Simulated assay, not measured.
Amino acid sequence: MRSLILASLAVSVALPAFADEVNIYSHRQPELLKPLTDAFTEKTGITVNTAFVDKGMVERLQAEGDRSPADLIMTVDVARLGEVKDAGVTQAVAGDALDAVPETLRDADGQWMGLTTRARIVYASKDRVADGELTSYEDLADPKWKGRICTRPFTHDYNVALTAAFLGHHGAEETKTWLEGIKANLAKKPEGNDRAQVKSIWAGECDISLGNTYYMGKMLQDDEQKEWAESVRILFPTFADGGTHVNVSGVALTSAAPNKDAALQLIEFLVSDEAQKIYAETNFEFPVSDHVERSEIVQSWGEFTPDSLPLSEISDLRPQALDLIEEVNFDG
């Protein structure tokens, strides 16, 4: 990035300058994007520089303003995509690239779009949870699960998005009651990440947990965690009047975008069948393209019906959802 040293980023590194390049600020680890960026560079000759920005992305982009070297923002979770839009550090994308993404998985104003999806599912003990014992998100508040649920903090983005989706279906009063019911069913205080909850099921500390689908693929590739993964099965709960909640990894074009044309080429590549297949095979995520098959491992988890509530609506409901989570002191 033209003599830029990203000294204040989580990973501080001087990035090289090239005649044709795209510069990405990413919440995702660069190694997760490398198979995609390498394929794009091989196809187009355009170099991709990726800087991992763990925290403070919005603040950094606002401080840099029009001088920002970043062309694209790549992140996970609709909440983070909504944050960059609300901060005014993105610009709209139109045309074939945007149209390639289903309407429910992109911003209504074209300020961001999903690239892959992941379902927020339930990991259930193979030994202690019977088939059909849990079928809906509403079931999580049933007293029969008292002392049987583990979860990461509900103030985490993934659970805030799920709560926002529940809010979109049921309204504030029912959502508060639902949160209180799940809290009463917890086996222990919320802590750790999604994989840690599966470990707790394996250890007999609880029987079910919430998690993202792709973690199953990641755990099965890990020598230690494979045993945890094999102790559970994936359930695809639905809302009583909807489908299974999905979230996205996504991309947004920055308002500065010094290499806009090249950045738009990369966006077009990321929604192409070629890139979607790479996503499916390497990260165990669901392609947004209907033309691309899921990986063999992902197919083994079974079919489900994604919820139809638009992610842009879920993003708008996120602040109210977080208020309700904090009101019931879920993580306390």
Rank of each mutant, 00 (worst) to 15 (best):
323 D>M: 14
30 P>Y: 02
269 F>N: 01
198 V>W: 00
117 T>G: 05
305 T>F: 09
314 I>C: 08
100 A>T: 10
128 R>W: 10
235 L>K: 01
64 E>F: 03
138 E>T: 11
235 L>F: 05
33 L>C: 05
312 S>E: 13
106 R>P: 09
192 G>P: 00
138 E>H: 11
104 T>R: 14
273 D>T: 01
162 L>P: 02
165 A>Q: 12
257 A>N: 09
210 L>E: 00
181 G>W: 05
287 P>R: 02
283 N>W: 09
319 P>W: 10
242 G>T: 11
289 S>C: 10
145 W>R: 02
323 D>C: 07
80 R>E: 15
52 F>V: 01
85 K>M: 07
202 W>R: 08
231 S>C: 08
183 K>I: 04
46 I>N: 04
91 Q>M: 09
17 A>H: 13
286 F>A: 03
79 A>L: 12
58 V>C: 06
161 A>W: 05
189 K>Q: 14
132 G>L: 06
298 V>T: 14
266 L>G: 03
31 E>V: 15
158 Y>P: 06
240 A>D: 15
65 G>L: 05
32 L>D: 11
325 I>K: 01
19 A>P: 07
52 F>Y: 14
44 T>L: 12
223 D>A: 15
271 V>Q: 00
225 Q>F: 05
57 M>N: 01
249 S>A: 14
120 R>M: 14
10 A>P: 13
159 N>Q: 11
197 Q>C: 15
134 L>V: 15
87 A>D: 01
130 A>G: 06
295 S>E: 00
99 D>V: 10
210 L>S: 01
125 S>T: 07
305 T>K: 10
175 T>Q: 12
266 L>T: 02
329 N>I: 07
262 A>Q: 15
173 E>Q: 11
248 V>H: 01
197 Q>R: 10
135 T>S: 12
176 K>E: 15
269 F>H: 00
243 G>L: 03
88 G>S: 06
253 L>A: 03
242 G>E: 04
97 A>R: 00
31 E>L: 11
325 I>V: 08
164 A>Y: 00
135 T>L: 14
176 K>W: 06
234 I>E: 13
